[in-house]
Amino acid sequence: MKRSRTTAALHRHTTDWSANRRVAVVTAVLALLVTVAGLAAYVTGRGDQGPKPSAPSAPADPSVPFTDKEGKPSPGPDRGSVAAPPQIADPLAFGKAAAAMLWSYDTRTTTRDQQLAGMRAWMTDEAKYSDWSGVQAQVPDPVLWSRMGDNAQYATATVGQAAFPSAFKQALADNPTALSEAYIYAVTATGKQSITWKGGGGGAEDRSVTLAVQCRPSADCALVSIAPRVAP
């Protein structure tokens, strides 16, 4: 697959998240897991609209930009082309949307600061769990972003599916009565990222990411972090 040096540099640009945030999120996802009883409370709180771990409802297509009441894309001037977080309580649907957001960018219309502002809007406001440093590390540094802009580089994403990892579901089965304190779900999303740059360059590759998603009762979901690798 043909790709520019800038694109290759982008995919090499990763940073480990802080130890403290890692401990907090791993604890929330794998030790304080949302269980069957907790999920029932969550569903009741959302008007019986939430999914069950064993049979989640089919979410809307997250590749469609967030829209206003007239159905027009509404990314917001302060966040460039970055889609606004969807107002949904389904962790799988939110996970798909968040993955599409993380795999999409447009240096032609969006500054690096706007990209970060757009991503920040997806994060939980609970500082105890939020790993903003790990999420923002996915954005290239200012020099690389500028070079990507010089190449008019942009990426779009299609997310095919999202599922709870087997480790998450096993934890539910092992402890079906305990209630979660954090309401954080592990969600693994898979899809494809397509990258294009000026001069007719471009390429595509399969992508997969496990996210920590918080969906408290009577509240919209929010992104917690890009989670450590979890068995599918």
Rank of each mutant, 00 (worst) to 15 (best):
V135H: 08
D174L: 10
T124D: 10
A99T: 01
A121L: 13
T156K: 05
A117L: 08
T107A: 04
V135W: 04
F164C: 02
V139N: 05
Y183D: 08
T110C: 00
Q138A: 12
Q138K: 10
Q138C: 06
W132N: 04
Y183W: 06
L172R: 15
S130L: 03
D125E: 06
A173R: 03
R108Y: 05
M101I: 06
D131H: 10
L179F: 07
W103S: 05
D174M: 07
A155V: 00
P165G: 02
M148S: 10
T177R: 13
V143K: 11
A162M: 01
Q138I: 11
V159H: 06
T158G: 14
L144E: 04
Q136F: 15
T110A: 00
S133F: 07
A97W: 08
A97S: 14
Q136I: 15
A100I: 02
R108K: 12
A97G: 12
G160H: 12
A100F: 01
S104H: 06
A137T: 05
P140S: 09
F164S: 06
D131I: 06
A152T: 12
S166V: 13
W132R: 11
Y129L: 10
D141A: 13
F168C: 07
S104K: 08
M119F: 11
Q114W: 12
S166D: 09
W122G: 00
R108D: 05
S130A: 14
T124Q: 08
D106E: 04
G160R: 14
V159E: 08
V143W: 02
W145G: 07
G134F: 12
S166F: 02
S130G: 06
M101W: 02
S166A: 09
T156D: 05
Y154H: 13
M101G: 06
T158C: 10
S180P: 04
T111H: 07
P140H: 10
V143M: 04
Y183A: 03
A100Q: 09
T124R: 09
Y105V: 00
A163V: 15
Y105T: 00
D174K: 13
V139S: 08
A127K: 07
A178C: 14
